[in-house]
Design a protein around this nucleic acid. Structure first.
Lengths: 335, 335
DNA sequence: ATGAAAGCGCTAACAG
DNA sequence: CTGTTAGCGCTTTCAT
């Protein structure tokens, strides 16, 4: 070994000459690319940026870099993009796109690449996952509403092929049963996307079934909640005067809406950080698949209040406007 | 050459065996990684996700993949992350972090790597850039307000070391001069970040100088506009009853705020798409640095209306609350 | 035309 | 312990 100061000098000169070690070449030899794939369903969905940020920051701190791929909610893309990532010799993969039964997840497991699911997981929990405690989240909303005196509570859920939507729906049914509330089929509607348009249409379905008046709605997602507000508007219902409403996810700016939305805050940043750490650990050495479940908390706005004695309730269907152009493009969302 | 069908068969078998060409190895030989670095200042700022999405989608369509790095607004990180990206043999670099005089941009130019700036550019425009036409944007807002009858208009700008903030500020001064409006120093304030907190404090400075009443405010960014709303609230001013307000960027959900914000929509997606295309072109062959300037458009909400005959105006400073904890963490924003 | 061989930049295994 | 060499998977060049 040469003296430390000479070594330092060499390094200095190397830097000055603009030498940068080529990690691709070294990776060719060591089969380590120090690169991780991150596949998300839709960057535009406000849920994901903070997660990605957490992932990226943590990876960078460990000398890794993120290959970002946005599937645009298309499973064809998912497939193709993942193949591209794998070909690029990524050391591991973080998927934010998982469905409850997910072909791609199975393939990746078969492939044997270190894999971590974030935000959503699969039914068979044999994959490392970092998710929100959705049951707790719904419980927080439910208890909050019941505490305010609500007894007839409706539910607007998301696509049941995602673990988040499914868990939230199940949690609602369970809590309602435990609390001794009659769970009427009419009072729940699951939409096929986590979007405002889908939420609006779900709430419309509930209201169009002319149920006995209910005083509160729990939704599985903030965007769905926004859609409910649109539906309320159509039917001449006021929030929170006639109906209380809760969201889920605490998307930015929700505290600046007409009624500030009461919602469930999930630790997005930490979700990303923990996912990255879990993956790095797995890359280091074989590990048994863990599921990390982070605790959400309730953020109270003013979209919830005690039920009113003289609730206004629509006598008939609203006059349909020619076309509600509020949501021109159906952008598929996610949670 | 063997027959086409045999070639096809071989490819099929190769796929079935799970063969994926290793682009790292081929890149070692060809000095093409088919990889592009994307450096952004803060993923959490709602301006960037759609830009990145546009970039990522376009790159993917051309067989490229994005190495995403989030500098968290720190220039040390910028430096380090960029070095990491360059070492990884990226074929090109997209920077969304540029300042008007940007050391890093100069370095990258010296390095000779294909470079495209997006959203913001540098003063010496010798770099390929895809930006918004900020002068036009401010003109749209200005003309809208003047058209409504406003004559005394204030301006809240952003950090003048970014081209966006600088252009918007200059455009405002120019338009005011051309329209023959007296431009009082008191009526303009540039904040040091594109955040709600910075906007609030800037508007507070203006109001605390006790200027002759003004009837409208143009801001250089939606988040700054939100901060202005907070300041209005502190001073007992109503928007739009007492003061009209315009934003800039058309951030999502701005159309659901208390007063729906009148703002300037810039084509974020296209910004990303065009930046990616410009970079790919440059990677293909040496090209003269172009600046692409995309056209924004006005989105009218109800934060703007004709000036009121009986405008309410604060007689004294507001009673200071112990501390406005509205913005606990100062998160540096960007535009 | 077809096939063998060299080498991209690096590291790990190997002699010296 | 130090210095040399082979080879990661691919492309390109050079013989055949």
């Amino acid at each position: 070994m040469v003296s430390v100061e000479v070594a330092e000098k060499v390094r200095d000169v190397a830097r000055k000459l603009g030498y940068l070690r080529n990690p691709l070449a070294s990776g060719l030899r060591t089969r380590r690319s120090h690169t991780v794939g991150v596949l998300i369903p839709d960057l535009t969905n406000p849920v994901f940026p903070p997660i990605i940020r957490g992932i990226e920051r943590t990876l960078a701190a460990h000398g890794y870099v993120a290959l970002l791929a946005d599937s645009g909610n298309s499973s064809k893309n998912k497939q193709a993009l993942t193949e591209g990532l794998l070909a690029r010799q990524i050391d591991g993969l973080i998927l934010a796109t998982a469905h409850r039964k997910d072909k791609l997840v199975e393939k990746c497991l078969d492939f044997g690449i270190p894999l971590v699911l974030v935000n959503r997981t699969v039914d068979k929990h044999h994959v490392a996952s970092v998710i929100n405690d959705d049951e707790l989240g719904i419980k927080l909303a439910f208890d909050h509403l019941v505490g305010l005196g609500h007894r007839r509570i409706a539910f607007v859920g998301g696509p049941q092929n995602t673990s988040t939507a499914h868990e939230r729906y199940r949690a609602f049914l369970k809590l309602a049963r435990l609390a001794g509330l009659a769970v009427e089929r009419q009072l729940t509607a699951n939409s096929d996307a986590f979007t405002e348009a889908a939420g609006q249409s779900a709430m419309n379905r509930i209201l169009a079934s002319h149920p006995e008046p209910f005083t509160a709605v729990i939704t599985a997602n903030d965007l769905l909640a926004l859609g409910c507000l649109d539906a309320f508007h159509e039917w001449g219902l006021r929030c929170p005067a006639d109906i209380s409403l809760t969201g889920f996810n605490h998307v930015r700016f929700m505290d600046r809406l007409k009624p500030r939305l009461t919602t469930i805050q999930i630790p997005h940043d930490e979700l990303g950080v923990r996912a990255a750490l879990l993956l790095l650990e797995q890359i280091g050495k074989e590990t048994a698949p863990t599921t990390i479940r982070l605790k959400p908390r309730l953020v109270t706005g003013d979209s919830t209040r005690a039920p009113s004695k003289n609730q206004r309730w629509p006598a008939a269907d609203p006059v349909k406007a020619p076309r509600s152009t509020r949501h021109p493009r159906a952008v598929l969302g996610a949670s």
